[in-house]
Amino acid sequence: MNIFRLAGDVCHLVAIIILLLKIWRSRSCAGISGKSQVLFAIVFTTRYLDLFTVFISPYNTIMKVVFLALSYATVYLIYMRFRNTFNSENDSFRLEFLLVPVIGLSFLENYAFTPLEILWTFSIFLESVAIMPQLFMITKTGEAESITTHYLFFLGLYRALYIANWVWRYHTEGFFDQIAVVSGVVQTIFYIDFFYLYVTKVLRGRGKMTLP
C-alpha cells in the first residue's frame, strides 16, 4: 500500500458518498445517469467475487464491502426510491455499445482463461467506460449540477492517483499490471476533458457547469 493508492481509494469513496448524499438529501436523481451507476455496481460485483475466497487485508475486505454496499444503495435510490425523479429519456446511452466490446475484449485479452480471471478483466475494462453514460448525459443536457461535477472530479482524481500508484509501484517493487494500467489510462483520459471544464467553469464560481 502506498499513499497514492490510499488517497485514490479515499477519493473514490468520497465520490461515491458525495453522489449518494446528493441523491438522498435532494431526494432527486435529476441529472444523474442511472446507467453509469448500474455499470459501477456490475464492476464491483464482478471484481470482488474473491471477497470470500481471498483475504488480502482488513482494509481490502472492508473497502470492497463498502463499495459494493454504497453502489447498490445508489442504484436502489435511483431506480426504486426516487425513480419518479429519474429522467430516463436523458439517460439514453446504449449500454450494448459498451458491454459487447468489453465482454469480447475480456475473453481475448486476459491473464488466464478462467471464470474468475475473465470476470476480473471484464470489470477492469468495464470500469474504464462506465462513466460514459454520465458524460454523455452531461453533453446532451449541456449542463451538470455542481454536486455532480464534484462527484466526477473526485472520480477522476481517484483514477489519476491510481496512475501515480502504478508509477510508484513500478519503481519500488517492479509491479506492473498491464491490463489494469492500460485500462486505467484510457479511463483517466475520459476525465481530462471534464477536468478542463470543471476548472474553467465550476471552480470559477458558477454553480452549474454549462457546456459551450
Partner: peptide, 10 residues
C-alpha cells in the same frame, strides 16, 4: 499468459 498476480488493488 502472464502469471496471475495477487490482486491486492481495489
Amino acid at each position: 499468459d502472464e502469471d496471475i498476480k495477487q490482486k491486492d488493488e481495489l
